[in-house]
Design a protein around this nucleic acid. Structure first.
Lengths: 204, 204, 204, 204
DNA sequence: AATGAATGAGTTTTCATTCAT
DNA sequence: AATGAATGAAAACTCATTCAT
């Protein structure tokens, strides 16, 4: 999946420069959106000339792609951590408070919205997010499958898929909720999530 | 709510032209996004010169605003229809199949994503969607409250709010699911939705 | 000098319409300048559709030309009035207070500036103002010549021309003074004008 | 006085580019006026892409402002030179021929007209010219005051102000004269100026 | 490696003018 | 006579990208 990166003699420095740019992009994309952020803005935030950025990225689109890629990996990692838990299923329920809280934090929910909108138009980005989604979906599927098996609950594949989809769907709806209802009652939402997730995780 | 529109002697024609523009915008915004779509593109789709569009809309932003407004009203109307049902709560469950199917239809889920992304940057659009969301939220809250009362279920306000939020959240997550997982198993998702919505609607 | 005007069956009405437009133009040109004023603005002020104006004027430039023409005639008329006086030379001196005051009135001095700027670029307008200037210059020359003769003062043509030029020059500098020094001491300026004009009118 | 300019590492080159633009502007503004001259025209005359100009000026208005500023400084400098003279008052009289000749030179008188017209509509430009005018007025006032004192002539402030105004007024009327009367007899005008200026400078 | 000067295509918007009604 | 809907050719300005240094 990784795009062919330009060859640089000093790979260390190159990757450090790339990170510099992506960090700058995070800030700029967060406040101005992918298209609102100009290369000039990014280059200033990165402490590097605009021209030089092109030594590390083919185009602005390539920066967006790398940025999105990076963001998707964060989700994958989260899922990986979950997998390590003693009882991941219970952990999901237990973590709801934290996860919901995080997603409602202003500055967190902006980027998913930006990414989704971009993916809906840009096929390259779409491919990226689909790939990542596919991977984390399968991670979650496996987590749920094992958790249910440990509890002696039978589940056929389709049912499992549906539930995993629904679980992800709930969490992916959060950014929109945060945006549309700034006065949202977080505690009450957490309680409702618990109520809805329980049958998805443990239901027959 | 509606902004003072330019006065046109022939109101009929004027509103027809506005519709023409908004219809063209729907197509262009859908395929290119709010900012990817140029006025030239829209004007071509509307079969009208770009300059002429400015006789009906103050700016491109005004077109976006009117377009978003229109879209939010569709949601409000849907909720209104629900309210008319004999047993709206049951209707929600019964309609899941249809609602989910609609939201997963390519061409339907693009615009919500675009709107949310825009709202996250454009305060005017944010105000618009928040206003509309507040309204339809209160509609749904009242539906759920009545439905539960009819079933002899007590619910305090906060709990009600949380559940309503969760319900909306699930549906607002759908466009992202459709985008991220094109191979999504719709039937299985519907079943999972039913499972998760039941306690939100009827749970203690 | 009058441009070929479009033929209208009802000449009365036509000329009334032309006046309507020119009156509107006076207002609009005064507040927005020749190029800042749009045809839409003028047509609204004239209480007439923009399209209809083109039945009476070939173009916006034609309106400007007619407007300028009309304004130059005002100066010519002023000069004509002066010619009627018992002792025009003395009248010039006596009227200084009034003339200066008028020229310093905000709303009066804008148009000469606008006209001059336009004339400096637009040959058609240049021809217009030159023509009018030539005429009123000769009027003033004749006034001064007669006045001096009546006082037994000999003057050769060139000297006369120079003095007339200088007199006009002083008055044509007034709009700029009004604009550049809003705190201008009018009474003191009038006194100075009197001082400077005296030798131009009566000097050897 | 000078606006904060964009930071350019190579200040030398930056200021040379700014000059390039202002020189081009001089040509274009002279032939087409501030608003008749397009950025495309200016950029071509400057030998530089239109976009690039925006690296040195915030907007076309900023170019106009800088241009006007520059022009006002020329006047101030002239006045400064005058101040250095042995007997500035006499110098004014002696220089009339030269000053009038300069002001009547085609290509010189266009810009003052343009500037005044612009200042009459654009408050920013108005502030600029008023500021400059105030300064050179006070220079001239001090010159005249000293000159008269050296000749043992008493003058109260108001009278002085009025005469200074009148002197400036005469010179500021020149561009209009040049424009309105291309056949103007320069020598005769100079003589008349001398006649009128004498009492303003040396009169009781 | 690094800069930032320079480009040029593309954007929204305005407006004089035309023309069907 | 009169309207105003409609056009299209401009205008100012932005920005990703290139390239000489």
């Amino acid at each position: 999946m990784s795009f062919t990166e330009k060859k640089h003699p000093d790979q260390e420095r190159a990757s450090s420069r790339r990170k510099q740019v992506l960090d700058a992009a995070e800030i700029c994309f967060g406040s101005s959106g992918f298209h609102g952020a100009s290369m000039a803005e990014i280059s200033k935030a990165a402490g590097m000339s605009a021209g030089h950025i092109y030594n590390y990225f083919d185009s602005k689109d390539a920066i967006i792609a790398a940025f999105v890629q990076h963001n998707m990996e964060r989700v994958t990692n989260l899922m990986g951590n979950l997998e390590q838990c003693e009882d991941p299923l219970q952990a999901i329920l237990d973590d709801i408070e934290k996860s919901v809280h995080a997603d409602l934090h202003p500055g967190i929910w902006k980027l998913p919205l930006e990414i989704s909108a971009e993916a809906s138009r840009n096929p390259k980005i779409a491919a990226l997010v689909r790939d990542a989604d596919c991977y984390s979906r399968s991670q979650l599927r496996s987590i749920v499958a094992k958790g249910r098996a440990a509890r002696g609950l039978e589940t056929d594949m389709a049912t499992l898929d549906g539930r995993v989809e629904a679980i992800i769907c709930m969490f992916q709806g959060l950014p929109t909720r945060a945006l549309y209802n700034p006065a949202l009652n977080e505690a009450a939402l957490v309680a409702a999530f618990r109520l809805a997730l329980a049958p998805l995780l443990f239901g027959e």
